[in-house]
């Protein structure tokens, strides 16, 4: 199904934040907001649900640590038990450094991969850049025209105090 979208362009983050808050208060459906850098407070202003990446990171770190500790115990005590200077075969303190490193490795690399997966970022992806200067110096708010009562003039009035630079209607491309 295709939607009609209203693309509004702003010149700085303060205007964009104000416009986003105003649009949300008035009950408009915000499809997404595009910015050249991470604007603080914008995620709460547009009501993005908090990301769960931290849980992914914790789970991956824990599994990396458990796997590596298990592997060290298995190689040192079961698969190839060698008496090194009378030390116990399962010498946990000596296994800590490598366990720690592998935990960080799993958590770090895994979380990045999870981020790519969740945000659908992959090499070769064709980006649909919403406005050509959005990675440079423009801040773009995209609203969905939900019903026939949607009035573009009203939106224009609402955004005027925020230094609206450009407004255009677009038909969402079908995926």
């Amino acid at each position: 199904m295709s939607r009609r979208l209203l693309v509004s362009v702003f010149g700085n983050e303060h205007d964009l934040l104000g416009a986003t808050k105003a649009a949300r208060e008035k009950g408009y459906e915000i499809v997404d907001v595009y910015t050249p850098y991470a604007v603080h407070g914008l995620d709460t202003a547009m009501g993005v649900r908090p990301t769960r990446l931290a849980y992914v990171c914790f789970a991956l770190g824990l599994s990396g640590a458990v796997a590596k500790l298990g592997f060290q115990i298995w190689t040192s005590a079961w698969n190839w038990p060698v008496n090194v200077g009378g030390k116990p075969l399962i010498s946990i303190p000596a296994f800590v450094p490598v366990t720690f490193e592998v935990m960080v490795l799993f958590a770090g690399v895994g979380t990045v991969l999870a981020f790519f997966l969740r945000s659908k970022l992959f090499p070769g992806k064709k980006p649909s850049v919403v406005y050509d200067r959005v990675t440079d110096d423009r801040f773009v708010l995209v609203l969905a025209e939900t019903d026939a009562a949607f009035d573009v003039r009203k939106v224009r009035e609402m955004f005027k105090p925020f230094g609206l630079l450009h407004l255009e209607e677009r038909l969402e491309k079908e995926e």
Binding site: D32, V39, L42, V48, L53, R118, P127, S128
Partner: peptide, 17 residues
Amino acid sequence: SLGWEGSTRTWHRYEKL
């Protein structure tokens, strides 16, 4: 650049990452 679009949803996750 993996098809980066500057979406706030992505930025939000990016900041957390």
